[in-house]
Design a protein around this nucleic acid. Structure first.
Lengths: 139, 139
DNA sequence: TTTAATTCCGATTAAAATGATCTGGATTGT
DNA sequence: ACAATCCAGATCATTTTAATCGGAATTAAA
């Protein structure tokens, strides 16, 4: 079972963006240099983050992206919901036949999902920024 | 982000198997009837469970599968490790460049993985068996 | 001893999710 | 006007996941 990578990308991006002034647009090219993620891919993953209101962008020459929330206020859970609609527990039965019942298997896996969400809710962007970005470029 | 479905299948299978005498082989066809999972697919997902020592099988006519551990002794975490090698946190950097550093982003995601594993460790097969199987066939 | 029931195993296929790029349009400071 | 930049949708490529297939090996029972 893998922990989401797109949410991971998004959080790295946001954390990197957070190291800049929030009123001076940072071009995607710069974020790309910092993170190693291609400009095109950054453009893609930044879309939902804009829709969610985490990022604001200005177009045209000397445009770019700005974080418009404080890092301590964004949790990994929020990022994950924005990027992939949160944590999806498995369908219990192949044919959905258990949806109506009080099925122990289903509720067990639901509680796993819930616990995971809770953990994700306890970590903010600020937690991802503790290191020096020059020395530890992977944020 | 999706919660593992193969581990879910495996746990359903084991929980169903646990409702039978552990010294009388249950054919895959019966498990298939109970769970709605095809015989062939059951054969496949039961392989690693045998290797792990959770299940024992006898071949030939009137053969089948038997659970050879007690349901309270098998956690979802164990099942998941057997089926897919546990919880994999995301690679921090695309080029692995952060593997050596003390990277906050990496350790944050590692702690998510760890918390998830801990939750999985707290749920056993027995927890998946609380309901009546006739009324709630999806286990 | 034949037959039918069954597990076993590797290969293969099918479907879905993920990761990433492409192409071109729209906007805007210089 | 021009160059820098974001924007949006389509497309491609890769990997993962889900599931099936075909046939060999085993064994109880007829």
């Amino acid at each position: 079972m893998r922990i989401s990578t797109t949410a991971h990308y998004a959080s790295r991006l946001l954390a990197n963006l957070a190291t800049y002034d929030s009123d001076k647009p940072v071009p995607a090219a710069v974020l790309s240099d910092n993170t190693g993620i291609s400009v095109k891919f950054i453009e893609k993953i930044i879309r939902p983050l804009k829709t969610a209101g985490f990022v604001r962008s200005v177009r045209g020459a000397s445009g770019g992206h700005m974080l418009c929330i404080r890092p301590e206020q964004v949790t990994l859970g929020q990022v994950l919901r924005v990027m992939e609609g949160g944590v999806q527990p498995p369908q219990c039965c192949p044919d959905q036949s258990c949806g109506e019942h009080d099925c122990a298997a289903r509720s067990a896996w639901n509680s796993v999902a819930q616990a995971l969400e809770q953990t994700l809710e306890s970590i903010t962007l600020a937690d991802l920024m503790r290191d020096n970005l020059d020395r530890y470029p992977c944020q």
